[in-house]
Structure formats: structure tokens, C-alpha cells
Amino acid sequence: MQKIAYYPGCTMKTTAKNFEDSAIAVFKKLGIELVEIPRWNCCGTVYSLTSDDLMHHLAPIRNLIRVKEMGCDKVVTFCSMCYNTLKQSNLRFQQNEEERQKINDFMYREELNYEGDVEIVQALEFLRDSVGFKKIAEKVKNPLNGLKVAPYYGCLLLRPKEASIDNPEDPSIVEDLIKSLGAEPVDFPYKNECCMSYLTVNHKDIVAERTFNIIKSAGKFGADMILTSCPLCEYNLDARQREALEKFPDHLSMPVLYFTQLMAMALGLDDKDIRFDLNYIKPDDKLIKSNI
């Protein structure tokens, strides 16, 4: 079985446990073992944008040191925010020699001097480039024929463009994955727009309105469900439907799944691997069963 270093990040271990469980099971089914990085720490969730703030790049870079300590030079991550933070910090580290020195100096107690030579790969990229959607299609046990799925990229898989996993304005990677599972991708105008992210903490109302608009649009284009790769997008689009319904009584609820959950359905994995128990809006039984 092929092995690859895996960075989970904080939320995959807590509210997005369904993301992690389905991810591990799906990768195992594809013959890949995700080996968790020992002693990993939170990446900080957001990339520090100011020119003089080096301190906040220590957390992501320290995780890359752990990857090197495992003897690896490639790490897979699922969460869009982790991916973006690790990727951008690594790019900045690679491009600026003076900062590289300072960051290493900060972490003088680490045994290893990091050189910027770890490749950060988002799981969707890994599926496209290292596994291949063709191979995934061959492994499908229950083709999801007739299921209409709206891919929701959000912001951090695609922007900024130097950290993008696909064309930032016209991506197709999730659509290709959906097709390989036998389902039908639904294009809708909000697919690469932000869900307003962490404003869910101090402005539930703004996020609820955003969620209402995103889901309404996906529904208008015929989607049965929305697919995401970010635990924060998932929470906002899924759990915030509660507030969306309070604010907009005509809101029609729609399930929001992680791409690994949809893959687990198609690959014929058990309920314990798919873990709909942690999704706020449960996918309709008929919708699921008619496709399995």
C-alpha cells in the first residue's frame, strides 16, 4: 500500500471528524495509507498577510519540519484553509532568503534547518495527479447516476492564484471528480465565491444571508446537494441553514457534503465511514438510497 504524509489540522479532529473518517476510508480503498504527521500543530488557519509579521509563519513551517523528520518531502492535506496557509507560508519562505534565515533562527531548538523543500498537496490535487480520476471511476461500486451535485470551491482552494489547485476563475477539478463517480456536476455562479468564512463567529446574520443565497442559487440550477472541501464552508453552508431559515422562511434546505463523503458513497463504503451523523442537514434517505 502506497503511503503519504498527512496533515489533518484542528477541525478534522473535532467538528469535521466525518471529513477525516471518510477521507481515511476512501484513500484506503484506493490503496493509499494516510500517515499522520507526528506532533503536528495548528497551522494558524489564516495566512498572515503583513510584510513584517514573521511570527505567524512559524506554526505552518514547523509542521513542514515534522514532514521532513518523517523522511518525506510531500504532504497531503484536506482542509482548504490548512492547505492555503501551509502553501502560502511555504511559498513566502522559499522566495525570501532573509526571512528564511529569521524563521529558522526563531526555531533554533528544532533539530532540522528547514529549506523550503516540502511540497504541499491538497487532496483533490492528489486524486487528480497521483491517483487519476480514471482509476477512481474504475473503483466505483455504486455509480451515483442521476445525482446532481454542485461543487463549492469557496475561496482558498483557488486564490491567491499562486496557491490555486486549478484555474482560479474557471476550475473543473471537482466537476471531474463528480463525473468520475457517475454523478452530474451542476455549475452555479456562487461556486468560487466566499461563504464569509469566520464572520460566522461575530456576524451570524451576514453568513446566514450568504448561505441562503448560495443554496438558493444551487437549487435554481437543479442541484440535489453541495460538495465542499473546507470544514468552515461546510459549517457555514450546512449548520447556518438554521439561521437562514429563521431569516428567510422560504429557504429550502439542501445537504452539504465533503467530497470524501460522496466518494465513500460511490465506492460502496459503510455508513460508519461516510458519517452523515455529523452533517447538520441529513441527506434525504430516498436521495441516497436511490443512488446506492
Binding site: 477541525t11 495548528c42 484553509m81 468564512s197 469566520y198 470544514p231 468552515l232 459549517y235
Partner: peptide, 8 residues
């Protein structure tokens, strides 16, 4: 989610 509180 942790991610929301940390980022906020």
C-alpha cells in the same frame, strides 16, 4: 468549529 474561532 475550531477553525472558525481561531481564524476569527
Amino acid at each position: 468549529p475550531t477553525i472558525a474561532m481561531v481564524s476569527c
